[in-house]
Every structure is written in structure tokens, then in C-alpha cells.
């Protein structure tokens, strides 16, 4: 790794101040960022790495004001074993316990998981070999290249730093996003509180709407009412040390309200609104489950290389819904 300076801030304010300076970058567990630095993937190499782990108090899990509140620095391994999480959001514990690999889970934080950079192999190729739209360049190399793991809902169009419109077909790989979306979670930052669905963004060298110096501090999950059912499913090619090619989360309330969230299929984690609409107010049947699966991918625009993801979403959603039948 090329050299950089390092800061162990004691407070959020100190960290925020440092991160407002150009050329500084925040690091939680480091699992994502260190790889990016070792491969030197960005246009600019940071001058300063700010270690967020030195800030006390960001790793608590507690129930407060009718919500399960999870500090941004809670580690995935701890989450997977946490009693409160197992009680109120067991699917989040399950999702956290299946990420990456055992050792990585013990040192990766939920905040880092949500903020990680795209895994697109063009984006990640060393020495900024592909100076793509997400780096500030013009092209999305995956659009015309090998996009088997990329978005099946088309590219995201976003404005780059110069205000020019650019496209990117990389998916958001924040593995905990779908369960948090289905659970109706909120994200608390040093500046604001956002529904989790509004937290993600497609920007140059970023997958969130966080501004420079703004830090994610907490995730709040409203306590689900009694009788709520939830399911989480991830599908990866390898059973460990792998990102899911598709993951999904379902919450079903006793009133048959459904929230279905999908990851790995679009530039941002998405809600399968057409499927939710179809399911709303209905008791589950195998036919309904199958129809919901089809509805979830109705608006998809896959490429030849990644159309398999639609089949996976259809099947997995159908099967998980069937498993929720009374």
C-alpha cells in the first residue's frame, strides 16, 4: 500500500472536521477500504485515513423510543449473536451472520457494510485501469463489457462532479440493505435522519448520499408488531467468502402488508413495489407467491449475461413467500 497519514479521532466532531478536508477518507472496519487502497483503484489516493473505530460509543445496540438502535460501528459478528437483534430483527442477525467469512464478520461494521464501494470488477481493477464514470470518467465499461454480475434494472444515471450526466451499471452490494429496507429502518447521520431507502445514492466514489464530513452514526429499526413474519435469503455462487449475486428480504405484517427488498440487482437496493402491490392484503398461496416473483422483475432490463438473476429473484421470492404460508 502506498503511504498515507492516519488519524485516530476521539470524537465525531474531530472526525468530521478531518473528513471535510479534501483528500481524507473515513475507515471503519477497513475491510472494504483497505482493498481499494491496496489496489489503488481511485483517481486520487487519500492523504489521510480517519479511523472511526477510535470514537467511543458508536458500537451500542439498544432499544430506545420504540426502536432497535444499532450503532454504526456494531460489528457484523456481534450483530449476528446479539439478543436484541435476534429478538426483534432475526433476519438482520441472519444476514449479518452470513456476510463474507467468519473472521471478516468479526471486524466489519454495519456502517461499513452500508457504505461500501461498488464491487464492479472494472471499478475495482487495480491502478484505476478503467477510469469509469464512478471515478469521474466518462464511460461505464461494464455496460459494453462483461456485466454478468451487474444491474438487471439498467444503469443508474447520475451527475458527475462537472455536472455531466453519466451512467453506471454496477450494483449496490451493501448486503444488509435489503433486510433494513424491509424492516423500515432509518439511518441517522451527524446531520440528519433518513429512511434507509433514501440513504443510498450513485455518485463518484460513493454509494450513499453522505456529504463530506457527514458520518453515519446509527441505524434505527422500528420494533415490529407482534405476529410479523420475516424472511431473508441470499444466493451466492460460493458458500463462503462471497458476495450474494442476489439477496432479498421480506417482511409480512399480521395485516398482510408486505415489504420486499432486493439487493444485488440494481445500482441501489430496491423495494419490489410491484410485488408488494400484488401481495397487499392477501393471504399467501403458491400461485400468489409465483405471481409476486414474476412481478418483482417485471420492469427489469437485463443483459444477455445477467438475465439469470431474474430467474433467481423469481424463484427465491416465490420459495420464501411459500415458506411464510401459515
Amino acid at each position: 500500500m502506498r503511504p498515507f497519514n492516519h488519524l485516530n479521532p476521539a470524537t465525531l466532531e474531530e472526525a468530521a472536521e478531518a473528513l471535510r478536508q479534501p483528500g481524507s477518507v473515513a475507515m471503519a472496519g477497513g475491510g472494504d477500504l483497505l482493498g481499494a487502497l491496496k489496489d489503488d483503484i481511485a483517481r486520487e489516493y487519500p492523504k489521510l485515513v480517519v479511523n472511526l473505530k477510535s470514537i467511543p460509543g458508536l458500537d451500542r445496540t439498544e432499544v430506545r423510543d420504540g426502536a432497535l438502535c444499532i450503532g454504526a460501528l456494531c460489528l457484523l459478528g456481534d450483530l449476528s449473536r446479539n439478543e436484541l437483534v435476534l429478538q426483534y430483527a432475526p433476519m438482520l442477525a441472519e444476514a449479518a451472520g452470513k456476510c463474507a467469512s467468519p473472521a471478516l464478520r468479526e471486524n466489519s461494521s454495519i456502517g461499513g457494510n452500508l457504505c461500501q464501494l461498488p464491487r464492479c470488477w472494472y471499478f475495482r481493477k487495480l491502478n484505476n485501469r478503467f477510469d469509469c464514470a464512478r471515478k469521474g470518467g466518462e464511460r461505464c465499461f461494464a455496460l459494453s463489457g462483461d456485466n454478468r454480475y451487474h444491474s438487471v434494472f439498467g444503469p443508474a444515471v447520475f451527475e458527475n462532479c462537472d455536472g455531466k450526466k453519466r451512467a453506471c451499471i454496477a450494483v449496490n452490494q451493501a448486503e444488509l440493505a435489503p433486510p433494513l429496507m424491509a424492516l423500515g429502518a432509518e439511518i441517522v447521520t451527524t446531520l440528519r435522519t433518513l429512511p434507509v431507502g433514501e440513504f443510498f445514492g450513485v455518485r463518484v466514489m460513493s454509494t450513499t448520499v453522505l456529504e463530506p464530513g457527514e458520518l453515519l452514526t446509527e441505524i434505527r429499526i422500528p420494533l415490529p408488531e407482534a405476529g410479523t413474519k420475516m424472511r431473508y435469503k441470499r444466493f451466492s455462487f460460493r458458500k463462503s467468502i462471497d458476495f450474494p449475486v442476489v439477496n432479498l428480504a421480506i417482511v409480512k405484517t399480521p395485516e398482510n402488508e408486505y415489504r420486499v427488498a432486493l439487493g444485488g440487482v440494481a445500482p441501489m437496493p430496491i423495494r419490489a413495489e410491484a410485488a408488494e402491490e400484488l401481495l397487499r392484503g392477501k393471504e399467501l398461496t403458491p400461485e400468489l407467491a409465483e405471481a409476486a416473483g414474476r412481478a418483482a422483475v417485471r420492469d427489469a432490463k437485463p443483459t444477455e449475461a445477467n438475465a439469470y438473476k431474474l430467474q433467481l429473484v423469481k424463484t427465491l421470492l416465490k420459495r420464501e413467500l411459500i415458506s411464510m404460508m401459515d
Binding site: R148, F235, F237, V245, R294, A295, V297, R298, D299, A300, P302, T303, E304, A305, N306, A307, Y308, L310, Q311, L312
Partner: peptide, 19 residues
Amino acid sequence: ATPDRVLKALGKCEIGGEA
């Protein structure tokens, strides 16, 4: 024979939403 290739060989990767 990764799942994508198996599905493709089985003809289950039609492009276009509701298959």
C-alpha cells in the same frame, strides 16, 4: 457450471421481464 450457465443452458434466462 455456475448457476448462471446452468440456467442459460436450461433456457431459463430469457431477456424480458415476465417470462
